[in-house]
Amino acid sequence: MRLLEGTVTIADLDAFIETLGEVADETETTIQAFDARFVVSRAHLERAVELADRAISRGNEIARDRAVEILLYASGRRQINRAFEMGVGEGERSVVILIDGDHEDEAEERLLERLDIEAGPTLGERMDEPLVRDFFDIGEEELAVVDGDLEALVVERVALLTVER
């Protein structure tokens, strides 16, 4: 799994998503873009990929598309429209683009060629803690129990999607 991090200005969301899909098809990779404000760490996305792949291998997937399945797990939600809140939108955005497959280098290269991405770190730096806590329904008491480890609670929410099936 490779993460392409940076800032991008998205004038047309449909065109942006279409480009992601084209590059994914051309390189036989899975590509999913996230609003960096919602992603707490690399472990957050690694766990989502692991659980999505496990669901797919068992025939228990929620979505027909692997990229969407990963988004569902990363968001800890079964409803696709709610999971999309964690995706990108129009305007200037800090993004984390997950690339997974045998041709990750080629996919990243093509994305950098086709999209106006200013590559740079976003993981942890752009995460919006109040937004994440609200999105994953993490209160003060729960956060205090785990000594303020928001990452651990988010990764737990990702894993709970399996239990809630």
Results as ranks from 00 to 15, higher is better:
Leu115His: 05
Thr162Met: 09
Ile117Asn: 00
Ala43Lys: 14
Thr7Ala: 00
Met1Phe: 06
Phe136Asp: 00
Leu150Thr: 14
Arg54Val: 12
Gly6Pro: 01
Arg37Cys: 06
Gly139Thr: 10
His103Arg: 15
Ile97His: 02
Gly59Cys: 11
Ala74Asp: 08
Arg126Gly: 00
Asn60Thr: 11
Arg110Pro: 01
Phe84Ile: 12
Arg42Glu: 11
Glu61Cys: 10
Leu153Gln: 05
Arg114Phe: 06
Arg126Tyr: 10
Phe34Pro: 00
Ser41Arg: 08
Glu46Val: 08
Ile17Val: 15
Thr19Arg: 12
Asp53Ala: 12
Thr19Asn: 10
Ile70Asn: 02
Gly89Ser: 13
Val40Thr: 15
Pro130Trp: 09
Gly148Cys: 13
Gly6His: 02
Ile80His: 08
Glu151Gly: 11
Ile10Ser: 03
Glu46Lys: 13
Glu90Val: 13
Glu106Ala: 14
Val39Lys: 01
Arg133Tyr: 08
Leu45Gly: 03
Ala48Glu: 04
Glu108His: 06
Phe16Leu: 07
Gly148Glu: 11
Glu61Pro: 05
Ile97Asp: 01
Glu129Ala: 12
Thr122Lys: 05
Phe136Ser: 03
Asp134Glu: 15
Arg114Ala: 06
Asp137Glu: 13
Val40Ala: 03
Glu125Lys: 14
Ala159His: 07
Phe38Met: 10
Val154Lys: 01
Asp14Val: 11
Leu98Asp: 04
Glu156Cys: 04
Glu164Lys: 15
Glu61Leu: 09
Thr7Met: 00
Gln32Asn: 08
Ile10Trp: 03
Phe84Leu: 15
Glu129Phe: 07
Asp134Cys: 01
Thr27His: 02
Ile31Glu: 00
Ile99Phe: 05
Glu90Leu: 02
Asp116Ser: 11
Leu150Trp: 09
Glu141Val: 12
Glu106Pro: 00
Arg54Pro: 01
Gly59Asp: 10
Glu108Gly: 14
Glu151Asp: 15
Glu92Thr: 15
Val132Cys: 06
